[in-house]
């Protein structure tokens, strides 16, 4: 049994310790907002926070989460009230939407570190998040908008 916290709720899972956190979240815990895109930490669709740090859950064994806090897209807010979600809605960023959980989770972590990031800082922070629909310019606009909403 491996115990950790997901979005403030304690969970205990009976899985092989080398199982990637991604699949534990999706198949065992039942939170499917975190996405599988590559399985090798190349695309960022699986980004969640582990004790506040953005990580690639597809290559993070669940054993590393033991006793720690995991935050997923579902835990950001109950009603899209997180400023990053608000900014995303205001800019109507998503197209297919599949990569957006990862883009948003990376952005939340970025804004916790840098209150008002420049375009270059945004590019660097989000370099690991692939979007095939080409929403990158919308993501950039939404990051700036979210920074403003958060009082930067």
């Amino acid at each position: 049994m491996i115990a950790f916290t997901v979005n403030g709720n304690k969970v205990r899972v009976d899985v092989a310790p080398d199982t990637p956190l991604l699949w534990v979240l999706r198949d065992t815990v039942g939170l499917t907002g975190t996405k599988y895109g590559c399985g090798i930490a190349q695309c960022g669709a699986c980004t969640v926070h582990l004790d506040g740090e953005p990580i690639r859950s597809c290559t993070t064994p669940v054993s590393q989460a033991a006793g720690r806090q995991v935050l997923t897209i579902e835990g950001l807010s109950r009603n899209n009230s997180h400023p990053v979600q608000k900014a995303w809605i205001a800019e109507d960023v998503p197209q297919c939407g599949y990569c957006q959980s990862g883009q948003i989770m990376t952005t939340v972590a970025l804004l916790a570190k840098i209150k008002n990031p420049s375009d270059a800082e945004i590019d660097e922070a989000l370099a690991g998040n692939i979007c095939r629909c080409g929403t990158y310019n919308g993501v950039r606009r939404a990051v700036h908008r979210a920074a403003k909403l958060m009082g930067a």
Binding site: R26, G33, T72, L76, N80, Q85, D92, P94, Y98
Partner: peptide
Amino acid sequence: PLLDTPSKVSGKTVYGID
């Protein structure tokens, strides 16, 4: 405003894989 945006930023949208 796009009708499918809110569920796409909350992680609730159900794709095939979900």
